[in-house]
Design a binder for these strands. Structure first.
Length: 426
RNA sequence: GGAGGCGUCGCCUAGUGGCCUAUGGCGCCCGCCUGCUAAGCGGGUUGAGGGUAUAAGCCCUCUCGCGGGUUCAAAUCCCGCCGCCUCCGCCA
């Protein structure tokens, strides 16, 4: 939800933001009109209610024989109050609806445009020359993650499909160990950076799902259990954002930071035919997600901090990657800025998104009513999230660290956990 | 899954339709008293939103788990939901 006070004070900024996203700036005028209307109705209701309460005392203390006449008058007042209450409800609903139609205000510096208008901030690490090293198959191509994994008996997609259908898989043996080591490293990294480790529910109530904005444009991406009216989360961000819903937080000691470990479920409804081989795009995976509640003034610094932690993980794993500043039109309604880290995928000669960190400023906190106390009462906090590791990271590790003999070098931080620095084909 | 009980201002608690603008205690805060501490005495203490003034303050609305309903009037009566507790059953 957008800040109604900021909207009153400076509608032009919000209009400009909508324009940069490719959205309709007229939504701002609709919301402003709804705001004025709501305030009028509320003032009217409060006035009438005040009169009613004062009159009610007369009725209570009146002698018995005067009561019938007073009650008749009170009834008229009551009818007026009820009518005013209905008007307030209508105006409030209209205001909420019009505010939900407005996306978060993008931060200065965010590139304008759509999906292809991102700006590459930097490329880090060296992409190996696989051909020169002889890491190619019979057809002269770099083996992809699934070919490598099958050599290690690390991933079984055939039986995943047999048991659960397409886009499901088993991580087997070293594959399972590698994933546990990766996610464990991510949890430890987050813990050392001041994040409280959390293992979160993966089934949530409708109001939490809606409050975090995942039932909007991408509602068909979400699994729902009809018999229980619960949703399977696509990320622990949902549970972590909901964790403090309807609360007033004490941020006087700095940001509140959580690292959520959870399974994530996505229907991948709109991606038929995309990334169908291997485990790049699957219905279920695991993820360690950073989540922070901060003072709005600290949000941009926290965002940079999360990005640095993500880059630290990628560097520790020795993965070549680049950082992109996602363009306004590709942000999703709650983000004010988003950085993606993309690792190099040698089998496809392209970049693959491994992590994403969003600064949602106060947008999510307004919907979930999460505030902190300041000099002038309470105000919404800022929320931020960022990926620290997912199952998909295995894809990049398997491809980038493979050797000509089909073995895979284990990066040092994981080697310590696995007890070996190389995974050999079996 | 079945049966029952409960949810009031930090904690405990009173409150069965109208002077409830919610009782009392504990705790906490301020002051008095005091060699110091404790005790005692006096005062204050639900939270949120808005208005006005900004030294404080003053005014209005909402707030008795949440949402509806009945009524001129609801903490109180009715319905739904959520949560907690007890017992039975089942279960990793």
């Amino acid at each position: 939800m957008i800040d109604i006070r900021a909207l009153r004070d400076d509608p032009q900024t919000v209009k400009d933001s909508q324009t940069r996203r490719g959205a309709d700036p007229a939504t701002v005028d609709v919301a402003l009109a709804a705001d004025v209307s709501r305030r009028e109705q509320v003032a009217r209701y409060e006035q009438l209610r005040s009169e009613q309460k004062a009159f009610g005392k007369n009725v209570a203390s009146a002698p018995k024989d005067e009561k019938p006449a007073l009650v008749a008058q009170a009834k008229q007042l009551s009818d007026a109050v009820k009518a005013a209450q209905v008007d307030v409800d209508v105006a409030q609903t209209e205001l909420d609806r019009s505010l939900r139609a407005i996306d978060n205000v993008v931060l200065p510096g965010v590139p304008a445009g759509g999906e292809d208008d991102y700006v590459v901030l930097r490329e880090v690490g060296q992409v190996r020359d696989f051909e020169a090293e002889g890491v190619i198959d019979a057809a002269g191509a770099v083996p992809d993650h699934l070919a490598v994994a099958e050599g290690l008996k690390a991933i079984d997609v055939k039986r995943g499909a047999k048991v659960s259908g397409s886009r499901f898989y088993f991580l087997t043996g070293v594959g399972a160990r590698l994933e546990l080591a990766l996610l464990g490293l991510a949890m430890d990294t987050a813990y050392e950076a001041g994040f409280t480790p959390m293992i979160t529910p993966t089934l949530v109530r409708p109001e939490i799902m809606a409050g975090t904005g995942f039932l909007g444009a991408h509602a068909d991406e979400v699994y729902r259990l009809a018999a229980d009216d619960l949703y399977l989360v696509g990320t622990s961000e949902v549970a972590l954002a909901g964790y403090h819903s309807d609360e007033i937080l004490d941020l006087s000691d700095g940001p509140i930071r959580y690292a959520g470990w959870s399974a994530c479920y996505r229907r991948e409804a709109g991606s038929h035919g995309k990334d169908t081989r291997g485990i790049i795009r699957v219905h279920q995976f695991h993820k360690v997600e950073m989540f922070a509640f901060t003072d709005p003034a600290d949000a941009e610094a926290e965002h940079e901090r999360m990005l640095a932690l993500e880059e630290g993980m990628l560097t520790a794993l020795g993965l070549p990657y680049r950082v992109i500043d996602v363009a306004a039109g590709d942000l999703g309604s709650s983000a004010a800025r988003k950085y993606d880290c993309e690792a190099w995928l040698p089998s496809q000669n392209r970049w693959l998104e491994l992590s994403s960190t969003s600064n949602c400023t106060t947008f999510q906190a307004r919907r979930l009513d999460i505030r902190s106390r300041g000099e002038n009462g309470t105000s919404p906090v800022a929320t931020l999230n960022g990926t620290l590791a997912t199952t998909r990271w295995l894809v990049a590790m398997l491809e980038n660290n493979q050797q000509a003999d089909g073995s895979v070098i284990v990066p040092p931080p994981l080697a310590a956990r696995l007890g070996t620095d190389v995974l050999a084909p079996v």
